[in-house]
Design a binder for these strands. Structure first.
Length: 526
DNA sequence: CGACTTTGACCCGCGC
DNA sequence: GCGCGGGTCAAAGTCG
């Protein structure tokens, strides 16, 4: 924005200078000595170049003006939508609580079908109530956004919730090792399992990992490898890598914990996505009476996580059961299934790339399925290896987005309909948990822009910033969603050592502005 | 030589 | 109490 203003300002001096030159040129048209002809030519050249320069600057200014207008429009629509939603928020909450309690007092299954992939293959099992597993994903979580005002104790509790690894063992082990971590909260833990097609032994997710163990787990001939993050000493993040028994081309990477250090740029995508997913899961299990045994699957396009190096080569949507060992029944696990890729032609966001050349081939592949989608890992209630996964009766929270949503987004991007931000706002604000996932996905999109610094890249980045700022400022207002917590989760530990530590790893002002919502208007209005 | 991997031993929780 | 299985440790080996 500042660049634009500077350029607009600098264009005026150009004009006046050129005017002066024109005047000089007119004066010089009168007969003059021969040696002055050379001076004339020089000045003519200068004039020509100045004219050309001016033209370029004008064009650029026009472009930037249009960008500015569009951004401002988007911002205004976002703001008005949020205001609307804020006003309606109280009524919505009461109605949703009414809806959730079924009239016949039959406890409904609580399924969170966060289906960001496009799959309808699970419809076959949707109607069987026994097959509906449990994920208590309470969207009106009691958890509160950790703001700078919050005590560090709160944050530690929150951190301990998501970052404790291993759950209870480490408590005893750490006494041996001397790692003083807060292991109090054994209940709030979450794993994020990412299923990808990958030929390499592990996915390149941008982080540094050190292998500390390998085991042959029961039911899967492929050994499971244990890694811990070595980016910073004492980082609690672990990951398990194991190939799927049914299809060895599928790599199941299970992450647990949040990084307590600034992340490499390339690791942002996966970290934010998994943190969002984990946070989403925890927001449910934290408030659920019965939801400790929750498992969820979020089917994301395999291109959403741009930090990954893997090559999807299978367009078919297949369902797999995770080995019981991977989807440990004792831990809430959310599975990001990236194995069902889509042909590029069917991908709306790929189509956007024509309008936004700097957008990477990232796709938010929202499900077009109209139904509740059961995650692959749930299957028929039993893992393929015979271990029963106990389910609890739960409430249905369907986050799957229909084709209408896709069309709206596409049309918005095409300029045929309401603005994209307006559309996204409607969808995002309709569910706080979904906001976190959107924020993560968008961050990964913006993160991976190919050519930093070019105008289109800045445009894309601005868009992401606006959207995410709106998302998180909304979070800050209702204090109940998890997207802000996921941001805090990423930043939480750093806040103990210094608030500025995280900043380099988050290229977006959004993460900073989340803690100072008042700055939003100033920044965007400038 | 340091960082990383391998691998057998060990610890612990859980189910029977 | 016992055995099983998951997860971790740590010494030895490997690699750059």
């Amino acid at each position: 924005m500042e660049v634009l203003l500077m350029k607009m300002q600098t264009s005026d001096p150009n004009k006046s200078e050129i005017g002066r030159k024109l005047q000089q040129n007119a004066d010089l048209n009168s007969p003059s000595p021969c040696h002055e002809d050379l001076v004339d030519r020089k000045e003519e050249d200068e004039l020509e170049s100045a004219k050309a320069e001016m033209g370029e600057v004008k064009e650029e200014n026009e472009r930037l003006k249009k960008m500015l207008e569009k951004i401002q429009e988007n911002y205004k629509s976002l703001q008005s939508s949020f205001n609307e939603i804020l006003q309606q928020g109280a009524t919505k909450k009461s109605t949703s609580s009414l809806v959730s309690s079924s009239p016949d007092n039959v406890p409904e299954p609580e399924l969170v079908s966060l289906s960001l992939g496009r799959s309808s293959s699970m419809e076959s099992i949707k109607d069987d109530p026994e097959l509906k597993p449990s994920l208590t994903l309470r969207l009106d979580s009691n958890s509160r956004l950790s703001t700078p005002g919050n005590s560090s104790e709160d944050q530690q509790k929150e951190d301990g919730a998501a970052e404790t690894w291993p759950p209870s063992k480490i408590q005893k082990r750490t006494t041996r090792n001397g790692d003083g971590e807060d292991q109090q909260n054994h209940v709030k833990r979450a794993r994020v399992s990412v299923r990808t097609r990958c030929d390499a032994p592990t996915m390149n997710d941008g982080c540094q990992w050190r292998k500390y163990g390998q085991k042959i787990s029961k039911g899967n001939p492929c050994p499971r490898a244990y890694y811990r993050c070595t980016v910073a000493p004492g980082c609690p993040v672990r990951k398990q890598v194991q190939r799927c028994a049914e299809d060895t081309s599928i790599l199941i990477t299970t992450y647990e914990g949040n990084h307590n250090h600034p992340l490499p740029f390339s690791a942002m995508a996966i970290a934010s996505t998994t943190a969002a997913a984990a946070s989403m899961l925890l927001s449910g299990s934290s408030t659920s009476q019965q939801g400790l045994n929750s498992t969820a699957t979020a089917k994301l396009s395999n291109q959403v996580l741009n930090g990954f190096n893997f090559n999807p080569h299978d367009n078919s949507t297949r369902q797999f059961y995770l080995p019981n060992s991977t989807s440990s029944p004792s831990l809430p696990t959310i599975t990001l299934d990236l194995t069902s890729s889509q042909p590029p032609s069917s991908n709306y966001f790929n189509r956007f790339s024509s309008n936004f050349p700097s957008f990477p081939s990232t796709s938010l592949n929202f499900s077009s399925s109209e139904s509740n989608i059961l995650p692959a890992v749930w299957g028929n209630g039993y893992s393929r290896y015979g271990a029963q996964v106990p389910y609890y009766q739960t409430r249905t929270v369907d986050l799957s987005l229909g084709k209408e949503f896709q069309d709206q987004i596409y049309q918005s991007f095409s300029g045929n309909n309401q603005s994209l931000t307006e559309t996204l706002t409607k969808v995002i604000t309709s569910d706080p948990s979904f906001r976190s996932v959107i924020a993560a996905a968008i961050s990964s999109m913006v993160c991976s822009s190919a050519k930093p610094g070019d105008p289109a890249d800045q445009k894309a980045e601005k868009f992401g910033q606006n959207l995410m700022q709106a998302i998180i400022s909304q979070d800050g207002k209702d204090q109940s969603s998890c997207s802000s917590r996921y941001c805090n989760g990423l930043a939480s530990s750093t806040s103990q050592t210094g608030s500025s530590l995280l900043q380099p790893s988050f290229p977006f002002p959004i993460f900073n502005s989340a803690f100072k919502p008042d700055s939003d208007d100033k920044e965007l209005n400038n």
